[in-house]
Write a protein that binds this DNA or RNA. Structure first.
Length: 821
DNA sequence: TCGGCAGAAGTTTAGACAGCATGTC
DNA sequence: CTAAACTTCTGCCGA
């Protein structure tokens, strides 16, 4: 079937596809067309990765748009959103517009409602529904990429409920679900009332095999000799073998999957010996440049180790890397500059990074709940193997599992090579998942009674595949009790069917996209502050919202608390105004410190906890008692309460955040907490998000001291910029980060206003003579005449700045590791 | 007494979604 | 119940 023979697509699309080189549709694509994707028919396509799934989605979306509709493409990862957007933008010549919406990136100012195709993550779509995005009911086609992720216990339920909601709002909606080959694609099709296209067909041959001893045995019965000498590294031999086998005039690159970050790093180091000896002079030069770029991303050991490996054509890839690191590695690997990447599962499902040879070195991974090393899911291994074979570059792809004995070889064949992937199973009927989705479903008007709620939940995958009819109802009831106790929903038990309604806070929580348990924890924590200084202050008391009050003052205690309203003149974001800070210092209520707030949001289920290492328990128990007064809420008993462990883990995270807000260098933080630059950014981002939510909650809820709102905002801003209080103003200037702000401050330039007035020589000196940077900064600070022509840097400013930048930000009188190793 | 070294014992362990505002003289 | 790569500790040896 030729693309140009398809009907129902926008004019010229078929021809454009042929011009791209799509002369014939692939068999699964043809089956999809036969099943009616271009006629608005719903479809589940369960086919291998890289077998043209995206084109099936495009055919559905484009034909839907041609009929006057609007399409939504749901991706599982933020990183994939921009990849897909770029891919779909090639249809803009045919009048199709594309927009993206994810948590950290919205299409540049474009109003989504006007776009024909919108790419978003499932959480973002869920959030848009909760917030009543007007274009949701205009959708005529929704594509769900990697639907098999409904099996994921954390994020699966969101996808499941979101699809159910979209279909409910829009009964005629064409639903196209793209899935890996799984055990029960028919059940998914059944759930979505869709046709099923299932196939193992791949455009590039994929051979899967197991290496043991001196050869790889492939699933097609063939063998390839790859002898491994005694004491030689099996992985290294296989990587070398791929590189030494030229196809298309080039050796093949490899992707090695391992089970821990540390293993990824040490494998990359070792494999650098293999790749390093096979580079051309030009490649060495380019790699050296790339390594410099990597070092420039971050000052941490991780960054340094990565750069060292990359210089030799080898790299590692895991979530501890900064996102800039990741894309540098991914791009260079695609460009065939980096010859081998050792990765954790980040690369198995993320952006498209194919390799000629995939080596699955570790097939078991530590799992605490399992109590040891757990074999990977068949689906996961298949996903890894599916990365083998680059379309247009490799004549074939090879996926090799490593065995260290004949027995293991047989086990790997049985377990992975011959095995079908596990069936997908809904994880909806679990409390954490339902807690969030029951509240959202009630709050956004999908259900007003208990019966209505249960019948809505009947549209989920869970309902179509469970045999236990009562389970969903019973978990729902447990969750409803929880939501009622915490004041998020009201229940009316008088009528025939129990009535349900979200309270004001319930609505807020749902719109903020918080787990209700996080919201409850935050509210409890913040309320302890108000309760602490006046027993008489309760939620029902009179709340003064005096529009004339400039902020909390000494009298505020009389009423127990003061609320800020938008009218009180504090909406200008001037929380760091010294006068205000001084005023609140006069308050004798319990002090709300950044650490207290960081600890509070860190112990919320929306924050991923840091692992307590040996010795940490002792260390943080001590910190916990030292700073107990700052922690919001009661510390669980060290000896009787199992929650104590979590409390300490949250304290560790809280301290990391505090360090960041105290300008401790990234490399010190990385070392102190045993994390990578990517983890630091991740923790800070999450905390920022939660503190913003906390700010909104604190404003919306009665019984929380207005001063608390100010403290929350300041703690959040300090995280955002990574600076101490006195630098908040400076760090707000574009191109001024925590480092430059500190240098400027040490040179006597303490504010944005100073930047406009200061001696240019001092500014230039503080910025270490970087003329262009200094000009940009002056311009961004709003200086009339930012030009630095003929200005010489003031060397004393530069010296002061250097001294300031080297100071360890640990000046709170706590025990400090004042050594440099 | 000290340093070097080998082997024993102990330690650690993947990933990643969400909101929001708002500018400048 | 299950692993494996590291790091740190321990004890032995020789000088």
């Amino acid at each position: 079937m030729e693309p140009s023979s398809l009907s129902g697509l926008p004019a010229g699309v078929g021809e454009a596809l042929e011009a791209e080189g799509v002369a014939e549709l692939y068999p699964p694509q043809e089956a999809a067309v036969d099943a009616g994707v271009t006629d608005g028919e719903s479809l589940v396509a369960a086919v291998p990765t890289a077998s043209g799934k995206t084109l099936i989605a495009e055919l559905a979306m484009l034909s839907s748009i041609e009929r006057g509709g609007k399409a939504l493409y749901i991706v599982p990862l933020r990183a994939l959103a921009s990849e897909k957007k770029a891919e779909f933008e090639r249809w803009e010549d045919h009048g199709v517009t594309v927009g993206v919406s994810t948590g950290n990136y919205d299409s540049d100012g474009e109003w989504l409602a006007s776009r024909d195709v919108i790419v978003a993550t499932s959480e973002k779509v869920d959030s848009l529904i909760r917030n009543g995005a007007p274009w949701i009911d205009d959708l005529t086609c929704v594509v769900s990429d990697e639907v098999h992720l409904v099996d994921d216990s954390h994020r699966g339920p969101t996808l499941e409920v979101t699809l159910a909601k979209l279909r409910k709002v829009n009964p005629g909606l064409q639903t196209v679900a793209l899935s890996a080959t799984v055990g029960n694609a028919d059940v998914i099709a059944d759930w979505l009332d869709a046709e099923l296209v299932e196939s193992d067909w791949r455009p590039i041959e994929l051979r899967t095999g197991v290496h043991f001893g001196n050869a790889i045995n492939f699933d097609d019965g063939s063998q390839r000799e790859v002898p491994v000498e005694r004491g030689e590294d099996q992985t290294a031999r296989l990587v070398a073998d791929a590189l030494d086998t030229e196809e298309d005039g080039q050796g093949g690159s490899s992707l090695v999957f391992v089970n821990s970050r540390r293993n990824a790093e040490s494998a990359a180091r070792k494999l650098g010996e293999v790749t390093g000896s096979r580079l051309t002079g030009e490649e060495r030069d380019r790699l050296r440049e790339l390594a410099e770029e990597i070092r420039g991303v971050s000052d941490t050991d991780t960054s340094e180790d990565l750069a060292d490996a990359v210089e030799r054509g080898s790299a590692f890839h895991h979530a501890g890397l900064a996102s800039e690191h990741r894309s540098l590695v991914e791009d260079a690997f695609r460009d065939r500059l980096i010859k081998c990447v050792s990765a954790t599962p980040t690369l198995a499902a993320g952006v498209n990074t194919p390799a000629r040879r995939v080596i699955v070195r570790d097939w078991r991974r530590y799992d605490g709940e399992f109590g040891g090393m757990k074999p990977l899911d068949v689906l996961e291994v298949h996903q890894m193997c599916g990365r083998a074979g680059r379309p247009g570059l490799d004549p074939y792809g090879e996926a090799v599992l490593l065995a260290n004995s004949a027995d293991t070889r047989e086990e790997l064949f049985d377990r992975y090579v011959w095995a079908e992937a596990e069936p997908v199973r809904s994880k909806l009927a679990a409390e954490p998942a339902l807690r969030t989705h029951v509240l959202a479903t009630v709050a956004s008007g999908f259900a007003a009674t208990r019966d209505g709620l249960l019948s809505f939940l009947d549209n989920t995958l869970y309902a179509t595949q469970t045999d236990d009819e009562g389970r969903l109802a019973s978990v729902t009831d447990t969750v409803l009790d929880y939501l009622e106790v915490n004041g998020f929903v009201e229940r009316d038990r008088d009528g025939g069917s129990e009535g349900l309604a979200a309270t004001g806070i319930g609505h807020t929580v749902s719109r903020l996209y918080l787990d209700p348990m996080s919201a409850a924890e935050i509210l409890d924590g913040l309320r302890t502050v108000a309760d602490g200084d006046d027993e008489g202050a309760g939620a029902g008391d009179f709340v003064p919202a005096d529009g004339a009050a400039p902020g909390p003052d000494a009298d505020a205690d009389d009423a127990g608390f003061t609320t800020y309203t938008r009218a009180d003149g504090d909406a200008d974001g001037d929380a760091d105004d010294p006068a205000e800070a001084a005023a609140s210092d006069g308050d004798d209520g319990p002090e709300v410190t950044p650490l207290g707030l960081y600890h509070l949001v860190s112990r919320t289920p929306d924050t991923y906890q840091l692992y307590l290492k040996s010795g940490d328990r002792e260390e943080y128990t001590e910190v916990c008692y030292e700073r107990e007064a700052e922690l919001l809420g009661d510390t669980p008993s060290e000896y009787e309460d199992v929650r104590f462990e979590d409390w300490l883990a949250a304290l560790k995270t809280g301290r990391l955040l505090e360090d960041w807000a105290n300008e401790v260098d990234e490399d010190r933080i990385a070392e102190r907490y045993g994390v990578g630059p990517g983890d630091i950014r991740g923790k800070v981002d999450t905390a920022e998000w939660l503190l913003r939510a906390a700010e909104t909650l604190a404003r919306d809820v009665e019984g929380i001291d207005g001063d608390v709102v100010v403290r929350v905002r300041e703690a959040r801003k300090r995280l955002e910029y990574g600076v101490r209080e006195e630098l908040l103003d400076l760090a707000g200037v574009r191109n001024v980060g925590r480092k430059r702000a500190r240098r400027l401050y040490e040179a006597g330039i303490e504010s944005r206003a100073d930047l406009r007035e200061a001696d240019k020589a001092v500014v230039l000196g503080a910025l270490r003579g970087r003329e262009r940077t200094a000009e940009r900064i002056l311009e961004n600070a709003g200086r009339e005449d930012p030009s630095l022509d003929g200005v010489d840097p003031d060397s004393s400013a530069s010296a002061a700045a250097t001294a300031g930048a080297d100071a360890d930000g640990d000046g709170d009188g706590q025990a400090s590791l004042g050594d440099f190793g």
